[in-house]
Simulated assay, not measured.
Amino acid sequence: MDLKQIEYIVKIAETGSITKAAEQLFITQSALNQQLLKLEQQLGIKLFVRHKHDLTPTSAGQVYLEYGRNMLREKREAYNIIHDMAQSSLGDLRLTFSRERGIDMLVATYPQFHRRFPGITLRPHEMFVVDQLNWLSRGDTDLGVVTVTEKQKTPDLEFELIRREPMLLAIPRESPRAVDLARPGTPLEDLPYLPVDQCKDSPFVLMFPKSTMRQIIDRVLKEADYHPYVLFESASIRALLTMVKNNMACTIVSAGYYKYQDKIAYYRIPGDPYWEMCITYKKGAYLNKAMLYYKDLIHEYFQVKAPLITKK
């Protein structure tokens, strides 16, 4: 199997498109399509089913991708070890993270990383947690910064805890349901409790149904036997909080988004539901010096530059 050809096929599978894959590989669409057709002719079987708007791997394609990804992962690991032995600052580091806070982290940590490892190309990807976990399991990325529940932790991955973030009920401070108000800046441990069903007759804005946070929220609502009217669903927690601070609805968010406290009243939820923020990578994978350094930068960022508001 030709490694360059494997990279082409993996990129087609990732993007689901010859056009998008060619753009990311910096080759022409025609050249990439010819590479795929040539390989399929050599193998005597189709690797992708061609739909109107995308391509999906066939059973044979899935076999090719599984073994091809393993070969690419072994190549990258070998190069990482050799670069460390040579004490060289070469190669790349592939990092995934979720929306919003991940971008903030990248902006804060990349300049320092680049100064320390100027020859390492950082390849960041913003994606949902479920996609991050799939990429990590396949070896398509080196490190991920994920927020997960215990049920989402798979045995093939390492989950290095950054911190635990409790879920908070957020309601407009002007709401008549905002009782026993905590002052802005109150540590999380000192926030009052408020059952979610105390917000009866108030609309809610929530994370989209397939998100990790929504899974936790749905469990909280089920345990409270409460079925709120959902005004709006979004992939952006900041959008939800903007609606709350404008007195439009209530929501549930993690303590990492404990902000806009002059406009929003926050409460702990009985039972103290939470998720874990972790640095995640393939179990048994070799972590080179650049990866170890970036792991330290991530820990430092969330502990020093973007900490939870807790008692010191």
Rank of each mutant, 00 (worst) to 15 (best):
D272Y: 12
H51C: 00
N33D: 11
I9Q: 06
A285C: 00
G91W: 09
L287C: 00
L143N: 13
F232K: 07
E150N: 11
L308G: 04
Q42K: 14
L231T: 09
T186M: 09
E158Y: 02
L206I: 13
L95C: 01
T251A: 11
Y193Q: 14
I81Y: 01
R219A: 15
L181T: 07
H83F: 08
G284V: 10
K38S: 11
T56A: 02
M248C: 10
D218K: 04
L106A: 14
A235G: 03
Q303W: 07
E233F: 10
H114F: 15
A224H: 05
Y286C: 04
E300R: 07
N288Q: 00
I103P: 00
Q34Y: 03
L194Y: 09
Y286P: 02
K20P: 00
M167P: 03
D218W: 04
R183N: 04
L25D: 15
T310P: 03
T154N: 08
C250I: 10
V244S: 07
P155I: 03
R94W: 02
I264H: 12
S59F: 12
E126S: 14
P124G: 07
T19L: 13
G68I: 02
A249Q: 11
A235V: 07
Y260H: 14
E74L: 10
K75V: 00
S30P: 06
Y229T: 15
E223A: 10
N247C: 14
G185L: 06
